[in-house]
Amino acid sequence: MSNNQGDMVIDEDVMRRCVGHVLPGVEDFSGLDTRFDEIGLDSMLLAELIVQLEEETDGMLDLHVTGRLETLRDLMLSLRPLREAE
């Protein structure tokens, strides 16, 4: 499973690399259904993870959440490329 929108592609591999950057040693999390609190991702680290995903995808991202935001999958599916006008 991945989130492909235009030039932006976020899949499990991208997520692993970025999580590993933010929380070294945690990149071997069990899967995208891993909850943030299971790996110690607090608000600041989540923000850091989004910044890292922006670096990895070479673009700016926006968050469109309609339901709960508790797992890496929720995060992956909530991200959209930020258009300049936004």
Partner: peptide
């Protein structure tokens, strides 16, 4: 506020 803060930090 939770979502907005998350995106504001960057």
């Amino acid at each position: 506020i939770h979502r907005a803060t998350l995106m504001a930090y960057r």
